[in-house]
């Protein structure tokens, strides 16, 4: 026999002959049994046993029956009350939804508590580190604003006042810039103050930022393209004592001394308890902030 024919034979077997003794209603026997003999056959068996032994029902069995009926009654009552209170199915759905809402709310509360807990832990750890890298973003941002001269600052510091040499009335000036404070002098003083540890510097109320320039136009000194008039007051916020020492021993300090001695320029360095410096002008027209590498 070829494999194809064998397969066909297996797929389409010849019809079997019908068993003549088979009950035609066998498939519905279960239903018939349920309909015809609903009573528990145990009752009949127990009755036969009782008839054989002749024993009366025990008191314990009677009590159990009463208890069972008690339970049945309570069950019916509870179900009835629940049905009367409202549709049980809808109630169940609503209860489950409410339960889920409560669960979700509780979980959200838990997570929020955990967030604040972790935040507190972070702050604690940052405080224990105490360093700039661990400082919070806010502190870092405000520090950057001060460093970029984007915000007005106040604090103790040093102020250096430069003024032209006092010329006797009527005496001719020995040279065009002799005895006068020029832009180079102001630049040197400012650089000396930065080097001495100044955190913010202003010249005659013009705050110096990363975009500031100090230059001259003719005889006038210009800071950020604004002409200033003498005397020039350079204010620097920082540790007054440390800055004064560092400035006096720096190149700028020695240069000032030379100016004072040789040209009669007036230069005074004085610590100040409180200096108020405005924000610098920051007009950015082309530069845009961007992440590194982009």
């Amino acid at each position: 026999m070829s494999p194809v024919r064998r397969l066909r034979r297996a797929l389409h077997p010849a019809p079997r002959p019908v068993d003549p003794h088979r009950d035609p209603a066998a498939s519905t026997r279960l239903l018939t049994e349920v309909m015809e003999r609903p009573l528990d056959p145990g009752y009949a068996a127990a009755a036969r046993r009782r008839a054989r032994t002749g024993l009366p029902p025990t008191r314990a069995a009677r009590t159990a029956t009463v208890l069972a009926l008690l339970v049945v009654g309570a069950l019916l009552a509870v179900a009835g009350v629940r049905a009367a209170a409202g549709a049980p199915a809808a109630d169940r759905g609503r209860t489950q939804l409410a339960q889920r809402v409560q669960d979700g709310t509780a979980r959200a509360d838990e997570l929020a508590a955990r967030v604040s807990e972790l935040r507190a832990g972070n702050a604690r750890l940052a405080a224990s580190l105490g360093g700039a890298p661990a400082a919070s973003a806010d502190a870092r941002a405000s520090g950057l604003q001060v460093a970029a001269a984007a915000t007005a600052v106040t604090g103790p510091g040093l102020s250096v006042v430069l003024d032209d040499a006092a010329t006797p009335a009527g005496a001719p000036a020995p040279g065009p810039t002799s005895g006068r404070v020029v832009d180079r002098d102001v630049q040197l003083v400012v650089n000396g103050l930065w080097a001495a540890g100044a955190e913010a510097v202003a010249v005659n109320g013009q705050r110096l930022g990363a975009l500031s320039s100090i230059r001259a136009a003719g005889e006038a000194v210009l800071v950020d393209y604004r002409p200033l008039t003498p005397p020039y007051t350079v204010s620097a916020v920082g540790d007054p004592a440390a800055m004064q020492t560092a400035f006096a021993t720096s190149v700028a300090g020695r240069y000032l001394q030379v100016l004072r001695d040789n040209y009669g320029l007036r230069a005074e360095v004085a610590p100040a308890d409180r200096l108020d410096l405005p924000a610098a002008r920051l007009d950015l027209r082309f530069a845009r902030a961007g992440a590194a590498g982009q």
């Binding site: 029956t65 009463v66 008690l70 009654g73 019916l76 009552a77 009350v81």
Partner: peptide, 14 residues
């Protein structure tokens, strides 16, 4: 007494 038990159960439930 069984009927009484049933009634008592219903009353208790209600």
């Amino acid at each position: 007494i069984a009927a009484v038990g049933l009634v008592v159960g219903v009353l208790a439930g209600v």
